[in-house]
Design a binder for these strands. Sequence first.
DNA 1: AGTCATAATTGAATCGTTTCAATTTACATT
DNA 2: AATGTAAATTGAAACGATTCAATTATGACT
Lengths: 348, 348
Amino acid sequence: MTTLKDVAKKSGVAVGTASAVINNKSWVSEKTRQRVLQAIKELNYQPNQLARNLRTQRTNTIGVIVPDITNPFFPQIIRNIGALAHKYGYSIILCDSNEDYQLGIEAFHVLLDKKVDGIILIGGVVPKRELVKYLDKKHPLIVVIERDYGIPEIATVVVDAIKGGYLATKHLLDLGYNKIGIITGPLDDDDFYRGSFGRYEGYKKALEEYKISFNPEIVKQGDFSLNGGYKAMKQFLENNSQVQAIFAFNDLMAIGAMEAIKEKGLRIPEDIAVVGYDDIPEASYVFPTLTTIRLPKAQLGRMAVEILLNHTKKKPEFSIKKVLPLELITRQSCGAPLKLKSNLKWRY
Amino acid sequence: MTTLKDVAKKSGVAVGTASAVINNKSWVSEKTRQRVLQAIKELNYQPNQLARNLRTQRTNTIGVIVPDITNPFFPQIIRNIGALAHKYGYSIILCDSNEDYQLGIEAFHVLLDKKVDGIILIGGVVPKRELVKYLDKKHPLIVVIERDYGIPEIATVVVDAIKGGYLATKHLLDLGYNKIGIITGPLDDDDFYRGSFGRYEGYKKALEEYKISFNPEIVKQGDFSLNGGYKAMKQFLENNSQVQAIFAFNDLMAIGAMEAIKEKGLRIPEDIAVVGYDDIPEASYVFPTLTTIRLPKAQLGRMAVEILLNHTKKKPEFSIKKVLPLELITRQSCGAPLKLKSNLKWRY
DNA sequence: AGTCATAATTGAATCGTTTCAATTTACATT
DNA sequence: AATGTAAATTGAAACGATTCAATTATGACT
């Protein structure tokens, strides 16, 4: 291993000077700079990052925790985080909490241990109570995507989830569906609906606007997974709940719900319409294609990185919160309900 | 920041002893061990990993490079790598090369720079010529998943891809399809078919067995992406190539091909049958569901980690290669061709 | 030539651990 | 009590960079 000392010796300067060249401090004379550069090349010297990390207490690494890497929504965000971070010379340590708070907390501590320069939390991967414990201490900057903990020291990048929930529900109401079941995220002790709260509020707001009373019996809890959506939908179907449409709080659950509906021999949207949330790529190639709320995935990721790296030297003294826009994407899984259309019976 | 020195002072021992306690070396007496532990607790001491890393030249980190994190095949592997690594106290630095050799090479160098304890390459993310450059130098252990570079110093975990290609093709041949087009991975200057070579061989082997001559005109190059599959299929359809079935070298391209086929108003499998490769979750919920070759994704990931961590202290002196089993999963996208079935015309 | 400000350079201290040769302690044996 | 051996403990030297106060060189100006 060749070290800075070797470089210094070879080029006949002090290690401090060699270091200055590497970090191109302006005060090194051109002559010595060239000499050092030459030695670096000849010795094929690579600075040891570990020594650098120890001395500077920085790692050029940011930690990312995602709730479920197999949910196609997240890779889209991760890709953008990774690409932008790379551009700025940072790497990412990725942790998958598998929708499990315990794993999320563990991951959080690992990242603190590793002295990452910043942490990006995607979704509600760490419970609020755990997070607040670390705010008084010297902690790396934390940015949360798609979850608003309401903690001023933590930067937040979200979409207007209430509007999202509202748009999805309103779309169904406008088409004539009155009994709209919802499949939410996991209910939680101290973090209500794990951040799917906004969608929930939006749903209720739309109902209110259309003077339809909220019916808690057609609210089922999911877990943001395909299977969770499938199972929740099964409950709707078995309970003879008579729902005319379903608003699933993410696309994966929507697709799971569609599986259950098709399995039962019912048609989408003629018998039951479905709306999702996220707009993952799959939404446009499942059958029928899924109407959903599109989140700006690339922007969410990039914005989080921008915020993090802009404040990595010194913490911002004001609280940061960005709200990004979302939009309704209309596809096949919604349509006017049967009674308003032809009465033709046809099964898959 | 409280350091080991503080702990040592507080408990009245030398720092060497305190260090020994932390790394629970057996020769520390129970009495002093307790004293040190007590001090650690009272001071709420956390060892500084960066100092540790520098001193030991180890980081408890493994680097992972994937070709495309938005391809659902990879998150399944990543999850398993991450989970097992975490269990053994390791974190992963994830790099997404976006199917771009240049980015793959950059990622590789970043990982070497960061002094990761090992590197897992998934698929052909780094060209062979780049890899061999680093074999004479002191490099971390490298394990490659789903790609056989044929370099003894590099550990390899693959499936029997020739068998995979063979099974997929044979299945179609058995159903009566004779003209089977294929959509391969990217053709490459120095890395032929970027590791999709095995599937290609298997395809040819099956044809041979059925005495069907190989026709290079029905071989199209894809890029392992949905869109790549879509475009390749378009070519087949526009060229009036008369293919009766398609074997796409991964599921994503197969799904893309299905989109093109459906868009053209043709039926699957009645007009054109499709087989994929990987068995991503989507294969079972697209329409029609996709017949494919299932790869043991969890096992691939876990095996790579096992190999890496078993040899992280000292390099193995023999070359390691594991071949895992795969299987054909039959779903709706294949069936006997039209002439052998009913002649009913029906379009989507 | 002398003075002074500025530009370059030096090298020891530091970051916080682990490691290991040297030393001390404890205890059994004669 | 002396001796020998094994068990505990010590603390200085690494690991390889960055930082910064101190020093030296350079050149402009009188």
